[in-house]
């Protein structure tokens, strides 16, 4: 893993927590951190809809897994995995407003020739992007599976997430707002 980048792997959750299934990527990374210890060399972030403001985080990563709501084949809650050249068109297709920002983010890194050496997009097909903190039942039910897929993907890239004990899961780090969002 020879790279001048300080972060070997970035796991970046995307989407708006206030817009139903749109926030599933952000929710998934909160769940991931609750259930697993983040290994050294991995940065797990809830990027929300910050778009270009996420450029510093993306550019310091050698490889990146983006977690997001993705328009795709199959019913709501279906798992989608895209990689390489498939990623940019998927987020440029404007499933929701936040993806416009994600497209800017990826293009910004590309134009600056600071694109991570590998970008993988994992996500679920959403059902509703309407205002609300709750996900639809189909998406909510598929979230644990999405978290596991992220863990598997990271392992294949050489980063092992270790499950937390139930005591650990109950404890929350300072600055963790996930309980505020009902996660």
């Amino acid at each position: 893993m020879s790279s001048d980048r300080p972060v070997p792997l970035l796991v970046l959750g995307l989407g708006n927590l206030l817009c139903g299934d749109d926030g599933l990527g952000a929710v998934a990374v909160h769940l991931l951190q609750r259930r697993y210890r983040v290994p050294d060399g991995v940065s797990v972030l809830d990027g929300g809809t910050l778009g270009l403001s996420l450029l510093p985080y993306l550019e310091e990563a050698h490889e990146a897994i983006l977690v997001d709501a993705i328009r795709g084949e199959g019913p709501a809650g279906s798992f989608v995995r895209l990689e390489g050249d498939e990623v940019a068109p998927a987020v440029a297709g404007r499933l929701s407003v936040h993806q416009v920002g994600v497209a800017d983010l990826l293009e910004g890194a590309r134009w600056r020739e600071r694109y991570p050496s590998r970008v993988i997009l994992l996500g679920l097909v959403p059902e509703s992007l309407d205002l609300g903190l709750a996900r639809t039942p189909a998406v909510e039910a598929a979230l644990p599976e999405l978290v596991e897929r992220v863990v598997v993907e990271a392992r294949e890239l050489g980063h092992v997430f270790v499950p937390r004990s139930s005591d650990e899961m109950a404890a929350r780090g300072s600055g963790d707002l996930s309980h505020v969002y009902g996660l």
Partner: peptide
């Protein structure tokens, strides 16, 4: 449609900023 107001009703006012922060992706 804009309606974050509807999400905030009944909540702890000390938490409100954490929701409103998510309103806008450009100006967090």
């Amino acid at each position: 449609f804009r309606g974050v107001e509807l999400i905030l009703k009944g909540r702890d006012p000390r938490d409100a900023w954490a929701f409103t922060q998510r309103i806008c992706g450009v100006c967090t």
